[in-house]
């Protein structure tokens, strides 16, 4: 049977899985609103994770957090220099950036922490309890006793909404993503906007990588992002390029992933691989429902001359 503590555990797991995905997806959404699809988000996340590990090992979790944000932004800047600066194909460039990050992080990690690399234990960000609220039944532990990145991610949702839909630069960015030519005619520095949005998106991805290391696992492992950056891209589509939609999509994916903890705790005898598949299959099904009714930014993926 499912009791209160199991339900609390489920919700906590949901939020834990959703946090890095939400951060990475919000960043990717920002870039895509400007018409840039960055498949290098997986690489930026991985770089953020390694930078967080190195920073935390030498200066504590806060240094790790700062380095991770910088590392994610640097990877995205590399992507922007190619895809926006030199106008290379976005899909291919993003794939290459992820490949490069995979190689660099793997090699640097082994150089920094030894060939085995196992047993690396880092200082982590402890959960910050909101006094009173964290003792609420059911939602208390999941929402009000989380490490900093979760709060940052939740805070970023209204902030990005405000930015995109209530400020002039946000309007300009959306115009760039819909019709670069018109935006330019209106005096918007199109490619600069795209580059800034992409780099800011990379910073989000770096933070997402840091979340894995500093708030969840407490160590680094090669390829530890395990495709989360790619999932974030699917979450952007599922969330219809809207901050609130992205939040809901990330929570849904987190819930589908967290189901396995619930079912294991309930002692159901179902192959665990089924639960590994479930979030991806669910995303596919929902995409089929969503994709018809919503349109991507019109200039998404197109190179601006």
């Amino acid at each position: 049977m499912i009791d209160l503590s199991m339900a609390e555990g489920f919700l906590s797991a949901l939020v834990r899985v959703a946090t890095p995905l939400l951060l990475a997806a919000l960043g990717e959404m920002l870039a895509e609103r400007g018409g840039v699809i960055n498949l290098g988000v997986e690489g930026a996340m991985l770089a953020g994770a390694l930078a967080a590990a190195i920073g935390a090992a030498s200066g504590g979790p806060w240094v790790g957090l700062a380095l991770a944000v910088a590392a994610g932004a640097v990877v995205a800047a590399g992507f922007a220099a190619m895809a926006i600066g030199a106008r290379t194909d976005q899909i291919i460039t993003g794939t290459a950036m992820t490949l490069a990050a995979l190689g660099l992080t793997g090699a640097i990690y082994r150089r920094a922490f030894g060939t085995a690399g196992a047993g690396l234990s880092l200082p982590t960000l402890t959960p910050l309890e909101v006094p009173g609220l964290s003792r609420l039944p059911l939602v208390g532990p999941a929402l009000f006793a989380q490490p900093l990145p979760t709060y940052l991610a939740l805070l970023a949702v209204p902030l990005l909404w405000w930015f995109l839909f209530r400020t002039r630069p946000g309007l300009a960015l959306r115009a760039v993503g819909e019709s670069p030519a018109s935006a330019r005619a209106a005096g918007v520095p199109v490619r600069r906007m795209q580059a800034l949005a992409t780099i800011a998106g990379g910073a989000f991805a770096g933070l997402a990588g840091a979340t894995l290391v500093l708030a969840q696992v407490g160590t680094f492992a090669e390829r530890m992002t395990a495709g989360r950056g790619f999932i974030a891209i699917a979450i952007v589509v599922l969330g219809r390029w809207h901050p609130v939609g992205v939040l809901l999509a990330a929570l849904l994916f987190g819930g589908a992933t967290a189901l396995q903890f619930l079912f294991q705790a309930a002692g159901l005898d179902v192959p665990y691989q089924l639960f590994l598949m479930l979030p991806y299959l669910l995303t596919l099904v929902l995409l089929a429902g969503v994709a018809g009714g919503v349109r991507a930014p019109a200039a998404l993926g197109r190179t601006v001359e």
Binding site: A96, A100, G103
Partner: peptide, 9 residues
């Protein structure tokens, strides 16, 4: 894994 760097470049 360093070889991925070469592939990317």
């Amino acid at each position: 894994v360093a070889v991925y760097v070469a592939e990317a470049v």
